[in-house]
Computed example of a mutant assay.
Amino acid sequence: MRVLLVEDDEMIGESLSDALQDEAYIVDWVKDGRQAILTLKVQPYDIVLLDLGLPEVDGMGVLNTIRHAQIKTPVLIITARDEVKDRIAGLDSGADDYVVKPFELGEVFARMRVLIRRAQGQADNLLIVGNVQLDTTHKRVIMDDSPVDLTAKEYMLLNIFMLSPEKVMSKTELEDSLYGWGGEVESNAVEFLIHSLRKKIGQQRIKNVRGLGWYISNSN
């Protein structure tokens, strides 16, 4: 899952970015509204965490601009503005949810899961493909009623596949979802991850379409 964090406060931004990465999110962090708009026009994200009190263009301006541009990425406002009129204005401008600072990280993560799940048409936080189950709330994978131990990157890769079973994902799409800005990506990193994941959930579960990419199959 790739997150755009839009926050100009260094301390809040750093702590939130670190916490999101600990939760197996890929985080890109920008510190002003203009950069947020430019980024959202060229890079897809699963969700945006948006402060309102931003330099260059404030959060409301960001919301209005991206919604007019038909960018439908879920937006969770995270702000110190706690008056009802501010919440109403944010939601009416296109935000999907609103959290007031100071906040509990657990609540932020829960609200993120709801918005991402809703955008992807998922009924709950349990993904099931064949004999593999992935619990996105607790970051657990079960296969044939037994737990499967995955690395953080293996978990992220499996999550990407299981959100769209039978859909072929290209190497570029997978790299964009698995690695943030500034991250060094070796040429065979995706292939290596797929190889290691196949060893844990079965060679035939993840299939290759030569020249196009990979997908997770509902059948063994």
Score class of each variant (00 low, 15 high):
residue 80 A to H: 10
residue 207 K to N: 10
residue 98 Y to T: 04
residue 14 E to I: 03
residue 125 N to A: 12
residue 198 R to P: 06
residue 75 V to G: 09
residue 44 P to K: 06
residue 217 S to I: 07
residue 107 E to C: 02
residue 53 G to D: 14
residue 97 D to S: 12
residue 71 I to R: 08
residue 93 S to F: 09
residue 38 L to I: 13
residue 73 T to N: 05
residue 72 K to R: 12
residue 70 Q to H: 15
residue 219 S to A: 08
residue 37 I to P: 08
residue 166 E to H: 05
residue 107 E to D: 15
residue 14 E to T: 06
residue 129 V to F: 08
residue 177 S to D: 10
residue 136 T to G: 00
residue 185 V to S: 05
residue 208 N to M: 11
residue 212 L to W: 08
residue 22 D to M: 09
residue 33 G to H: 09
residue 133 Q to H: 07
residue 84 V to M: 13
residue 120 Q to E: 10
residue 89 A to N: 14
residue 170 S to H: 02
residue 74 P to I: 03
residue 92 D to C: 02
residue 40 L to V: 00
residue 50 L to I: 11
residue 207 K to M: 14
residue 218 N to W: 08
residue 113 R to V: 01
residue 185 V to D: 01
residue 168 V to D: 03
residue 154 E to Q: 15
residue 129 V to A: 06
residue 53 G to I: 05
residue 102 P to Q: 04
residue 59 G to A: 08
residue 181 W to S: 13
residue 12 I to S: 07
residue 11 M to C: 00
residue 24 A to K: 06
residue 79 T to I: 12
residue 211 G to A: 12
residue 197 L to M: 12
residue 35 Q to W: 03
residue 57 V to S: 11
residue 120 Q to T: 00
residue 73 T to W: 07
residue 26 I to Y: 03
residue 127 L to M: 10
residue 178 L to Y: 08
residue 143 M to F: 01
residue 193 L to I: 00
residue 90 G to S: 09
residue 21 Q to S: 12
residue 161 F to A: 01
residue 14 E to V: 03
residue 47 I to N: 02
residue 145 D to C: 02
residue 171 K to R: 15
residue 215 Y to W: 09
residue 186 E to Y: 13
residue 90 G to I: 08
residue 99 V to E: 06
residue 214 W to R: 00
residue 21 Q to T: 13
residue 146 S to Y: 11
residue 47 I to C: 04
residue 11 M to S: 07
residue 101 K to P: 12
residue 100 V to S: 11
residue 18 D to W: 02
residue 11 M to H: 04
residue 107 E to H: 11
residue 175 E to F: 00
residue 147 P to R: 01
residue 212 L to N: 09
residue 70 Q to T: 09
residue 187 S to I: 13
residue 35 Q to K: 13
residue 107 E to S: 09
residue 65 T to K: 15
residue 75 V to D: 05
residue 40 L to C: 01
residue 10 E to M: 02
residue 156 M to L: 13
residue 42 V to Y: 10
residue 115 L to P: 01
residue 161 F to W: 09
residue 51 D to S: 13
residue 55 P to I: 08
residue 78 I to K: 07
residue 92 D to T: 11
residue 33 G to D: 07
